[in-house]
Amino acid sequence: METWTSLRSGCGEVRATANPAKAKGTAWETAWTRYIQEHHNPAAHRNVQMGRLDIGDVSGYYLHAAELKAEKTITLADYIAQANREAIHAGQPFGCAVVKRRMKGVADGYVVRDVRTDVRLVSRLKIMEEALQDVDFSRWFEIDEELREAA
């Protein structure tokens, strides 16, 4: 006999369901997608799951396949391995796990990558910033100043 439960998570109301863990995961994916739509990319969206050829839970996080996790027990190694596989399937250069922080909202969650992926990302950022400085230093300076103020 299934037990129907209503949960309240740190990312909004969760509908009654026979699988509370799945409902929490869905609520986290939905909340994070809305956050990314508001702060990063209005076209971000949740993906349909495709089994072993999954492309991540959410598309639209620039250059990333994002694998979202809202679990009581956190297993980073598994999450990162899954995110990196899904980045390959999605044709994205970077994979990341987006992990819900218990009892906190979306902005307090964690985006996690392995060191290899993070160094590739930061190297790309460095190269691109240097290229923009070479082409249009004043534009780079404006962007840098704006982003420093936002931090």
Rank of each mutant, 00 (worst) to 15 (best):
E2Q: 09
V58D: 00
V14H: 03
T73C: 06
Y35N: 03
A131G: 03
R46I: 13
V58S: 02
I127V: 10
C96Y: 01
T117F: 06
R124N: 10
N41M: 10
G91V: 11
H40T: 12
E142P: 01
M1R: 07
D136I: 05
T26A: 10
E67Y: 07
G25P: 02
Y61W: 08
I143Y: 02
Q49P: 05
N41L: 07
R120P: 01
D136N: 12
S59K: 10
F94T: 02
R52Q: 06
Q49K: 13
A23L: 07
W140F: 15
M103Q: 14
A66M: 14
A107K: 15
R46S: 05
V112D: 01
A66S: 14
H89S: 14
I74M: 11
H45D: 04
L132A: 05
L68N: 06
K104S: 15
I88C: 05
G25Y: 04
K104H: 14
K126Y: 11
K72D: 10
G25S: 02
P20S: 09
L7A: 13
M1Q: 07
V115T: 09
C96Q: 00
A77G: 09
M103E: 15
M103C: 10
I55Q: 03
Q82T: 13
R85N: 14
S6D: 08
R34W: 06
S123P: 01
R116Y: 04
Y79V: 02
I88N: 02
E2D: 13
P93R: 09
E13K: 08
G25D: 00
A43K: 14
V14G: 06
L125R: 06
R116E: 05
H45C: 02
T117N: 15
R102C: 03
L121G: 05
L132N: 05
R52E: 08
D108L: 11
W4D: 12
N19G: 04
D57Y: 02
I88E: 08
A27I: 04
G95Q: 04
F137S: 06
R52S: 08
G56K: 02
E71F: 00
P20E: 08
P42N: 15
K104M: 12
D144N: 14
A81E: 09
F141S: 12
A83G: 03
E86M: 05
H89D: 11
V112C: 04
V106W: 03
G60Y: 08
Y110R: 01
V115R: 06
G56T: 02
Q92A: 12
A70D: 11
M50T: 13
P20C: 10
S6F: 07
Q82K: 07
S138W: 04
V14Y: 04
D136R: 02
I80G: 05
W4K: 12
I127Q: 06
E29W: 11
M128A: 15
Y61N: 03
A87K: 06
I127T: 10
G91R: 13
R52H: 08
T33M: 11
V122T: 10
A81D: 07
T33F: 04
L53T: 15
Y110V: 06
I127E: 05
I36C: 05
K22E: 04
F141Q: 14
I143S: 05
L125A: 14
S9C: 15
Q133D: 09
A23V: 03
A18D: 13
M50P: 01
L132I: 05
V48F: 02
